[in-house]
Design a protein around this nucleic acid. Structure first.
Length: 268
DNA sequence: TTCCAGGCGTATC
DNA sequence: GATACGCATGGA
């Protein structure tokens, strides 16, 4: 799929009708974005900052060179994938059709795998505001997103400033297993979904749900299908006979639409 | 004060 | 393998 963008001074301008910032940056998929104005967000992919503004289907990537746009942000916003075709496929299913119509700007945010792992470990039995706070404190403490090696030498006590509660020991276990070579995230990326999930679940604090979130957003395994309390409700209500098998390959993206739909429909 | 937040580890059967 | 329970923290 071709990416419709142009360079404008020190900015990049992208035209992409199948994207709405409120549908992707403020929905609990990634925890590193803050809304700084109407249609405007500031955040990071790992250590790369971005000030992005939406207006009329166009997106201004402020102070972004072409190389960074193509190398970091194009994959991050999953720009190579044709979401219009995807929604056409989903529209064969009644609940998904409604979900796609409800929020047409949903996309998969393809985060860095390590960043996603850390973030979703912190997400366990937690709320989005607090998760964002914890991840922000972690980033500010180092001045960059810490590597597994950097975190592996920390202790529960030294991570006290995060105020992450019982999750500190889980992040430490992740850092130690990766730093020590027991788990290789680059290898996880290449593994098929099932084996990748088994591998991630060797980390303390990573159960089926966290693993699926990490695999979906951090490793672009679109078969990963995170089921939390909201999705349980969706499955009971709309899919008593199971989720359609013909959608297996991209059911993770379908989940993003459904999650957004049920959650916003309930809270708005 | 109590409940809850995109769960998971542990004990127990 | 299924089910109960505790868990740090902070906002409602």
């Amino acid at each position: 799929m071709n990416i419709d963008y142009r360079v404008s001074g020190s900015d990049i301008i992208l035209r992409q009708p199948d994207l709405k910032l409120d549908d992707v940056l403020d929905t609990g998929q990634a925890f590193r974005w803050n809304k700084i104005g109407e249609g405007r967000y500031f955040g990071y992919c790992l250590d790369t900052p971005l000030d992005i503004t939406e207006s009329n289907g166009e997106f201004i990537f402020k102070d972004t060179d072409e190389e960074t746009f193509l190398k970091v942000w194009s994959p991050y916003f999953d720009l190579e994938r044709d979401y219009s075709s995807l929604r056409k496929i989903y529209s064969g299913d009644s609940a998904l059709k409604s979900a796609c119509e409800f929020s047409s700007g949903v996309r998969l945010l393809r985060q860095d795998g390590w960043e996603a792992l850390v973030s979703f470990i912190f997400s366990s039995n937690n709320n989005i505001t607090r998760i964002k706070g914890i991840v922000a404190r972690l980033f500010e403490h180092y001045g960059h997103f810490p590597t597994p090696d950097e975190l592996a030498v920390e202790t529960e006590e030294s991570l006290g400033y995060l105020r992450s509660g019982f999750r500190a020991k889980y992040v430490l276990d992740a850092a130690k297993k990766i730093s020590g070579g027991e788990i290789d995230l680059k290898a996880v990326e290449k593994l098929p979904y099932g084996e990748a999930k088994e591998t991630l679940m060797k980390i303390k604090g990573v159960g089926p749900k966290v693993a699926d979130c990490v695999l979906l957003s951090g490793f672009a395994k679109t078969e990963a299908f995170p089921v939390d309390v909201w999705m349980k409700r969706v499955l009971e209500e709309y899919y008593p006979d199971g989720f359609p098998e013909n959608l297996y390959e991209t059911r993770g993206i379908a989940q993003l639409y459904l999650f957004n739909y049920i959650r916003k429909a309930r809270t708005e």
